[in-house]
Design a protein around this nucleic acid. Structure first.
Lengths: 200, 200
DNA sequence: CCGCTAATGCGACGTCAGTTGCATTAAGAT
DNA sequence: ATCTTAATGCAACTGACGTCGCATTAGCGG
């Protein structure tokens, strides 16, 4: 058990430094946004030396990735509303909230993912986890008989959430919450419509 | 007509320099991708001096924006296949091609849009133009009686294309061309389903 | 052909992100 | 309490990016 940490030292100071730095990252992000997020700025605000930040986090993206992991919720499960449409609407509202928050850490990490591979990887990992957890929504609908058994969970989930991401992140076009619901309903209707056409 | 260019000089050399630089941008993009695209690299390859590139294009994003404008097609119109589904599939295939090309200038500009506002603006402008041109697809379907008159063209188009962008650009998950067709069909089915539910 | 001047070439400079070698501090073990 | 050694602090260095002032070139009008 002692060799669980043979050479590392996760002791008090190290943990304190990490906490200070991550707090500074979040604060800087809030004030200046991602573009104003700089390692020097984080170092000054946190009271930790530049070199230390460079050594442990390497890049701005690394800081964001660590922040993402620190705030990670491993217990997350999609809401169970009793219907496919309800479940998808609940999912889309979560996505909507995450993307329109101020500041949106998700938006910041997306931006970072286009700069460094590590951020891209962390984000891909995060989404892969979320989408596979969300697959139960589709499974429940199949069990209920709402959808054909052959329905591809990932495709359906992307059909529901993709339009929100596209409009808010890429098209940068503001959107009322109701539109997020609309995209969820469209995905549900399409999936059910697909069932209909396959059976007809 | 002479005062259309009162002080500027779009003469031979200037045009030649621009052509050389843009060619170099495309070549560098092909070889090193967006992340390896540097102003110095473009300057060396094009044989134009660093300072000139900085003065005329300012940033890497500026170079991409100019490349985008140079290759711009102002005569573009969506294909007319005779059905909503066919039209959306045609649209989605174009999007798919643009995003999976090697190298994809679209992907490069998207990445650039997260770094500099000018690139973001150019991209927004480009997409705004494309989506408004594509609205006729929806109008034709309305005229045919395929869709209710109240259908929102933009929402429908985003429903069709959004999932492709999301999966290929953000989720970074490869996708066979058939899936692009699938998303187009889903959007068509949903829009028609919406009609049905409104009338029922 | 000649003069004007915009556009480009050129070198030097300033700035800043990121790195490196060494000194210092403090966590953890004895 | 003492020792060992990660982890951090510190200062100087490197190199790339971007800028500036001035010299040179080459459109374009006469």
């Amino acid at each position: 058990m002692a060799d669980a940490e043979p050479a590392t030292r996760p002791g008090g100071r190290t943990a304190r430094v990490r906490a200070d730095v991550l707090a500074a990252v979040e604060a800087e992000l809030t004030e200046h946004g991602y573009d104003g997020l700089t390692i020097d700025g984080v170092a000054v605000r946190s009271g930790v030396h530049r070199t230390t930040v460079y050594r442990r986090w390497k890049t701005v993206a690394g800081l964001l990735v660590d922040l993402l992991n620190a705030g990670r919720d491993d217990t997350w499960v999609p809401a169970d509303t009793g219907s496919l449409e309800g479940d998808l609407i609940a999912l889309n509202r979560e996505v909507y909230e995450a993307l329109t928050a101020n500041p949106s850490i998700t938006q910041a990490v997306i931006a970072a993912s286009f700069r460094t591979p590590e951020a891209a990887e962390a984000l891909t990992e995060f989404w892969t986890d979320r989408y596979s957890r969300s697959a139960v929504v589709v499974q429940r609908a199949i069990d209920r008989g709402e959808l054909p058994a052959a329905t591809d969970p990932h495709q359906l989930l992307v059909t529901a959430t993709g339009p929100i991401y596209h409009q808010l992140v890429l098209l940068r076009r503001p959107m009322p919450p109701a539109t997020a619901d609309h995209y969820a309903r469209a995905a549900a209707v399409a999936a059910r419509g697909g069932l209909r056409s396959e059976h007809a």
